[in-house]
C-alpha cells in the first residue's frame, strides 16, 4: 500500500473563514496552501511579495490579528477566524496614503522597491508596538526585513518620521 493511500479519508480542501483588509471571505484551500501563496494566487493581492519563502527576508510580512508575521510561514488553515492586513489595506478608502507610506516616499526609503510592502507593514507594527524609541531600536526591531539595495538609513529615518507623526 503506498503512503498516499494510507492517508485516511478527509476532504481534500478545507473551508476557512478569513477577513482580509476588512473584507470577510470564505475560501476553500488545500491544507498545504500558505497564506502568502493564497493572497497572491487565489485572491490576487500581489502587493505581498514572495522573496525567500523560508522566513528569512520579510518581504511577505502581513498583519495577522494585528501582529506582523511572515505570510510564507503560515498555512491558511491556521487562519480560521483571523483578520489579515496586507499592504493593499494600508491606504484609506479614498486612496489617501498611510502616514508610514508618506514617510517612506518623503525619505526615499527604497530603491528597487521589492521589499517595500513588507517594510511598510513591518514599520506600521513596529510603531504600534512602541519600538521606535531610538534609531538603534528601530534597526533592531526592523531587522526581519532585508533590503538588498541597502536603503536601511532611509528606512530607519522614515520609520522615525512616521512614528513622530503618529505620536509614538
Amino acid at each position: 500500500m503506498s503512503r498516499d493511500t494510507q492517508i485516511r479519508e478527509q476532504p481534500k480542501t478545507h473551508e476557512v473563514r478569513i477577513r482580509v483588509n476588512g473584507e470577510e471571505r470564505v475560501t476553500e484551500v488545500e491544507a498545504r496552501t500558505s497564506l502568502l501563496d493564497w493572497l497572491r494566487e487565489a485572491i490576487g493581492l500581489t502587493g505581498t511579495k514572495k522573496g525567500c519563502n523560508e522566513g528569512a527576508c520579510g518581504s511577505c510580512t502581513v498583519l495577522v490579528d494585528g501582529r506582523r508575521m511572515n505570510a510564507c510561514m503560515i498555512l491558511v488553515v491556521q487562519c480560521e477566524g483571523s483578520a489579515v492586513t496586507t499592504v493593499e489595506g494600508l491606504a484609506g478608502p479614498d486612496g489617501e496614503l498611510h502616514p508610514v507610506q508618506r514617510a517612506f516616499s518623503a525619505c526615499d526609503a527604497y530603491q528597487c522597491g521589492y521589499c517595500t510592502p513588507g517594510q511598510l507593514i513591518s514599520a506600521v507594527a513596529c510603531i504600534e508596538e512602541g519600538h521606535t524609541g531610538s534609531e538603534e531600536e528601530v534597526r533592531e526591531w526592523m531587522s526581519g526585513n532585508l533590503c538588498r539595495c541597502s536603503a536601511y538609513p532611509q528606512i530607519t529615518a522614515a520609520v522615525m518620521m512616521a512614528a513622530e507623526e503618529l505620536g509614538r
Binding site: G55, G58, T61, M69, M73, W141, M142, G144
Partner: peptide, 9 residues
Amino acid sequence: AASAQLRNR
C-alpha cells in the same frame, strides 16, 4: 532570537 515577525509566530 530570530526576527520580530518570526517571534510573533
